[in-house]
């Protein structure tokens, strides 16, 4: 009975990241909320657009600014069953970035002998607009 009720309230949540990491607390807070929300077994995806794309850039080194480099945590999201990280192509291009500049983020398919499958999907602005319009809940950071 309780299980049934839980099934019925499963909703799609998209966390929309638009800020670069470290300059403000938004990016880290979003990531923490995402990790917490994973415990509630909802359908969670992330979007990265505008300066948010900088959160996924590889080679981040925060030693000189005295802050924790939380970028490795994105690679743990697969373990939390978060397998859809949408990155907006136009936002990358505007910033002189390509998919080559991003970290490799994968999830392991238990059904497929733990094969690593990519979590990042580069999508156009129009495609992202469509994906956002299909969500039950949008949370911007």
């Amino acid at each position: 009975m309780a299980d049934d009720a839980q099934q019925q309230v499963k909703k799609s949540f998209m966390y929309v990241n638009r800020k670069a990491p470290y300059g403000t607390i938004y990016a880290l807070e979003a990531l923490e909320v995402v990790l917490i929300s994973a415990a509630f077994e909802q359908d969670v995806s992330l979007a990265f657009l505008d300066d948010g794309v900088f959160q996924l850039v590889k080679g981040q080194n925060t030693a000189g600014i005295g802050m924790k480099n939380f970028s490795p945590t994105f690679k743990a999201l697969g373990d939390y069953e978060i397998r859809q990280l949408y990155v907006e192509r136009e936002s990358l291009e505007e910033r002189g970035l390509t998919s080559e500049d991003l970290m490799e983020i994968t999830w392991e398919d238990e059904e497929d002998d733990y094969a690593k499958k990519p979590s990042i999907r580069i999508v156009s602005r129009m495609e992202l607009t469509e994906v956002m319009a299909q969500q039950d809940v949008l949370l911007n950071f």
């Binding site: 415990a39 924790k68 939380f70 490795p72 939390y80």
Partner: peptide, 10 residues
Amino acid sequence: EYQVAPAIRV
């Protein structure tokens, strides 16, 4: 590796 302490399920 991940800079995060995993939740029990993980």
